[in-house]
Design a protein around this nucleic acid. Structure first.
Length: 124
DNA sequence: ATAATGACATGTT
DNA sequence: TAACATGCCATTA
């Protein structure tokens, strides 16, 4: 298990009930800004340990390629937490996005430039 | 070591 | 809004 995987799992675990994050945001918080797809890989392989359904893509959609069940299951899981998901799997991500606190960001021991990126991109 | 694969992001049509 | 192209990097073959 790589450090990247451990960080990703830790971050996803810290996403509170009823909130969501984007793959890109998780990647950035893990210290590798453009590794969004690797976040997906980690969740795919080790996702049973963490609230993977709170991770969606940055356009506010559930874009899991896996046919059938998983997308519907994710929709159901999110709705159970009070997150509105439309029939075509759209989510108001700005409204539901998890914005980590300063202390949580410091916990990740990120480079200062990444912290700046975070606040710029996601309006922390 | 190289090449292919992916639960993605971003910018351009 | 959607579709396409390119960039990215951990993992696997």
């Amino acid at each position: 298990m790589s450090k990247f995987s451990e960080k990703v799992l830790g971050i996803v675990k810290s996403v509170p009930y009823g909130k969501v994050v984007s793959y890109g945001q998780v990647a950035l918080m893990a210290g590798i800004p453009r590794a969004a797809i690797q976040v997906g890989w980690v969740l795919h392989t080790s996702g049973h340990l963490v609230p993977w359904w709170r991770v969606i893509n940055n356009s506010g959609r559930i874009s899991i390629k896996h046919p059938e069940h998983t997308t519907h299951m994710q929709k159901a899981l999110l709705e159970k937490e009070g997150v509105k998901v439309t029939k075509d799997f759209r989510i108001d991500i700005d409204n539901y996005r998890y914005r980590p606190s300063i202390s949580e960001i410091e916990n990740l021991s990120l480079d200062p430039q990444y912290i700046e990126n975070l606040s710029e991109k996601y309006n922390l």
